[in-house]
């Protein structure tokens, strides 16, 4: 876990130092997207090769959707008081 964080922090620091260098940032943005495309392709390939995945694909989908619905519901419930606290107060001041 420490290694994961180290690489992420190293990236953030590099990004902070390279802020003014638009060419470098544009290169890193393109490299990020390309790596994500490539890794998801490889993730798909490994998943496709795994016999177990074929049988669990349906349940993975159903479980995934259930988790997302519940996560959405939870976050919306907590966002309601925050909305009143931040934005309604501003409106009252106006």
């Amino acid at each position: 876990m420490l290694k994961f964080f180290l690489f992420l922090f190293a990236g953030i620091l590099t990004g902070v130092f390279l802020r003014e260098n638009k060419k470098a940032i544009s290169f890193f943005e393109k490299a990020t997207m390309f790596s994500i495309f490539l890794l998801l392709f490889l993730f798909g390939a490994e998943a496709g090769l795994d016999e177990k995945i074929k049988t669990t694909f349906y349940s993975s989908g159903v479980n995934g959707i259930l988790i997302s619905i519940s996560a959405i519901a939870g976050s919306i419930v907590f966002s309601i008081p925050v909305y009143f606290f931040i934005f309604r107060k501003k409106e009252e001041k106006k």
Binding site: K3, F4, F7, L8, F9, A10, G11, I12, L13, T14, G15, V16, L18, R19, I25, F28, E29, A31, T32, S35, I36, L38, L39, L42, F43, A45, E46, L49
Partner: peptide, 28 residues
């Protein structure tokens, strides 16, 4: 898919690289 791709894919190194790249994008 060719076998070398399957055997070598998804190494930790690729993930480290992507974490670094995502970090650069966020930091900038």
């Amino acid at each position: 898919l060719p076998e070398f791709l399957i055997k070598n894919s998804f190494s930790n190194y690729a993930l480290y690289l992507i974490l670094f790249l995502v970090g650069v994008t966020m930091g900038s």
